[in-house]
């Protein structure tokens, strides 16, 4: 049995009745229930997605993920999708300031929300302090997980400009860095806070 987002969605649709009749936990029931196919193709919708302060029009189906809208349909390819199973954090984006795994967030859930991706952080000409410090501290080896944790760390610093090491760890616990640059990532986030607070300079 290969589990996928599609199977999960199909199963959830079919398991509503089970959850109602047995009163058991909906998610558990979803995995237990036999998959019931939903007719395809699904209805196409068009909506406006607000990404990094700009509005973009995109067409999506009910099952289209936010990652697909951002990276494939709109070509904002900075957000890397790795596991596609909502477990590694590489594809994280902020929705109204809260980090979400965009591979398992449906596009429809993001409509009307403020979406923030790595492209909103900074660019070559105008590096965000986190990007500059991350570079100086070697907080990325291969860099595939980097846009994801940067976005989550931005979400953390927006709420708490002076996080402790434990707070940084908790905030980034949902991000896998296979090169294990973790200690440099922690120092990067802490010192970005220092720069943003005006206590340190680049």
């Amino acid at each position: 049995m290969r589990y996928s987002r599609r199977d999960f969605l199909k199963a959830t649709a079919g398991s509503g009745l089970i959850a109602l009749t047995t009163g058991s936990d909906g998610v558990v029931a979803a995995f237990a229930a036999p998959p019931v196919p939903i007719p395809t193709p699904m209805t196409k919708e068009t909506a406006t997605f607000n990404i990094n302060g700009r509005n973009y029009q995109a067409e999506y189906e009910a099952r289209t993920t936010l990652w697909e809208v951002i990276a494939v349909k709109l070509g904002l390819t900075g957000t890397n999708r790795s596991c596609n199973r909502a477990s590694c954090g590489a594809c994280s984006v902020l929705l109204d300031g809260t980090p979400f795994y965009s591979c398992h967030t449906l596009a429809m859930e993001a409509v009307g929300k403020k979406i923030f991706t790595v492209e909103g952080l900074g660019d070559e000409k105008n590096l965000h302090p986190m990007q500059k410090i991350g570079y100086l501290y070697m907080a990325a080896d291969c860099g595939f997980c980097t846009p994801g944790w940067e976005v989550t760390a931005k979400g953390l610093l927006d709420k708490n400009l002076n996080p402790s090491v434990d707070e940084v760890k908790s905030a980034l616990a949902g991000h896998i860095c296979r090169c294990a640059a973790y200690s440099a990532i922690i120092r990067t986030v802490i010192d970005t806070g220092k720069v943003l607070r005006g206590e340190a300079e680049l």
């Binding site: 390819t77 957000t79 890397n80 492209e119 952080l121 900074g122 100086l136 860099g143 595939f144 940067e150």
Partner: peptide, 23 residues
């Protein structure tokens, strides 16, 4: 020293050219 900027900085910008980013 930090790594070569033309190699390492794009990783922090979401601009490193992995095959998965080709659309």
């Amino acid at each position: 020293m930090p790594p070569m900027p033309e190699v390492a900085i794009p990783r922090f910008l979401g601009k490193a050219e992995y095959a998965t980013r080709v659309v």
